[in-house]
Design a protein around this nucleic acid. Sequence first.
DNA 1: GGGGTTCAGGAAACCGCTTTCCTGAGGCTA
DNA 2: TAGCCTCAGGAAAGCGGTTTCCTGAACCCC
Lengths: 340, 340
Amino acid sequence: MATLADVARRAGVSPATASRIISGSTKLVTDELRARVLRAVDELQYVPNAHAQLLARAQRTAVGVIVHDVSDPYFAEITRGLQQVATAHGRLVIICNSYRNPARELEYVELLRAQQVAAIVLAGSGYHDAAFTKALKGKLAAYTRTGGRVSVIGRHELPGDAVMPANEEGGYLAGAELFGGGHRKVGVIAGPRVLTTTTDRLAGLRRAAREFGRTVPARRIVYAGFDRDGGAEATAALLDASPDLTAIVALNDSMAVGALSTLRERGIAVPERISLIGFDDMPIARDVTPALSTVRLPLAEMGARAMSLALDNGGGGASRTEPVPAVLVRRASIQPALSR
Amino acid sequence: MATLADVARRAGVSPATASRIISGSTKLVTDELRARVLRAVDELQYVPNAHAQLLARAQRTAVGVIVHDVSDPYFAEITRGLQQVATAHGRLVIICNSYRNPARELEYVELLRAQQVAAIVLAGSGYHDAAFTKALKGKLAAYTRTGGRVSVIGRHELPGDAVMPANEEGGYLAGAELFGGGHRKVGVIAGPRVLTTTTDRLAGLRRAAREFGRTVPARRIVYAGFDRDGGAEATAALLDASPDLTAIVALNDSMAVGALSTLRERGIAVPERISLIGFDDMPIARDVTPALSTVRLPLAEMGARAMSLALDNGGGGASRTEPVPAVLVRRASIQPALSR
DNA sequence: GGGGTTCAGGAAACCGCTTTCCTGAGGCTA
DNA sequence: TAGCCTCAGGAAAGCGGTTTCCTGAACCCC
């Protein structure tokens, strides 16, 4: 690998001059030397060693992102927003998939710290797990103490700025739509109960139930993996336990898609016999049959805002929270309960 | 940010000793000192500066990946395979989204070179663009010359190892299924014609047509964006131009999903009036209605193999090519042509 | 008890770049 | 012509680690 010294030697100048020309310092250099250096760069196909640059300059330029899994459409959308803002600021993004493994999440914080990232964005590590939260808090504190910026998406007890999707409100909207439509026996297929996303959405649903004089008994809630297959399994379990449901709420769209497949298998018409409503409004929601009613969260925008918060440290100590509203999207998968 | 020197000072040892303890050198150190150093590390929340380490050690550890867009399910799957293998080897992966912009792709090669990655995996930059290919070739050559490893997914005229999905064969399978089923007027919605993926799949389709004494005239091929919306538009155009089609081949599943939505909008029954077949077998294919017949490519495995090739340099100069077979997956979206 | 090993720990060079500080040449004014 | 500025370019000191090489103490044997 050609080094700056090689370039300087070839151009017959000092490394200092070469460096100034290559990385565009403000210092003046004659056109003559400039041309010689640039030619040498070209001939040697020289590319500066980014690590050496980072070490020499004080400034940290990359930013880190910890998500569950970029392949998951929910996080893919968020990541898109994150990337877009980062790129606009000329920042390289390092993406880490935690696969919802707390230990791995902690490791990644270390790794990002080691990489000297300017900021860390945590998308979705809102766990109900005191020990983990404490450990994470500690690691992040060590990071922020040395000037690192942190922003999170979702509810946490973590320091730093936050983007807060209206999960509770969204749950309420879904519930109000169903209970308001006369449904009495509403089942829920939920993600892991350790996630604040799950519990918040569920809380909203319960609030809606109360408001309409209903309840969501525990036996009508099935917890499973927050993905398609989890949704399929949970739906099967739910139908077995409560065959008389008239509506199902899936706490995310992936689960809803799984639910749809189980319902189809069992020959249960949607929405005629069972109404189904999802959450997130991922792109697929429009393309399944029947098209999925859901609660939309502007995922890409959430990512963009989280990155913006992380990059501009206007916060000045006080941590900022940006609420993100949820809106109900009505499609073909729901209908009012049949009056009887 | 605490440095190694800080740790050493606090533990009352030399930086050399501290380094040896922290990064687990083979050199023996007394338990007494080890304990003191580890305590200091803990108290200072010390994390070694990865860039300094990289500079000091010779070994490059990260690997780079250039894809079109990780949010795109096709690349998301491939990336999953890539990541899995990389993580198993303890490698950090830097993912770059080129958004099919050749200039950006070239830039990213430079960037990855600057980051001193051990290998670069190019997923899907097979363009019919001589100037670009030449430039890319040059940059990659400069990289491999200094010991960098390159592997590509898809057809290129690039140096290095390659994973070759059977695009032509897959196109043939789709075509054979349709023409063999008696379809005569088959339309194609295709991705950008500069992509080798597009032209290869199309070539296979044409071979199948020939074999069954048919053709795929240019007027029944519409090129558009390789995504859902492109598929929707292309389908509309295709139907307007050739209302008498009995089958449509989408050159990837995203386009097929878009096609489905246009067909649904226009009240055209699938497969009764028009059969539809996709390509890739992305997860959604099972979940649309009717379930999509498609040509399966083992995307995650392709990613895994590309990463394996990149990481083990057993090649010894000669570049290896690993073919990946395509298989037809029959689902509800196709049926034989109505005999008349 | 002297000489040779063995071995834990430290000094210092080095990785590749940036940047401060210094030097010396040229141009200006008096 | 002397003295002072200005300014292009170079020397060298880091940035934060790793690792080679060296030192000195403890141990061994005869």
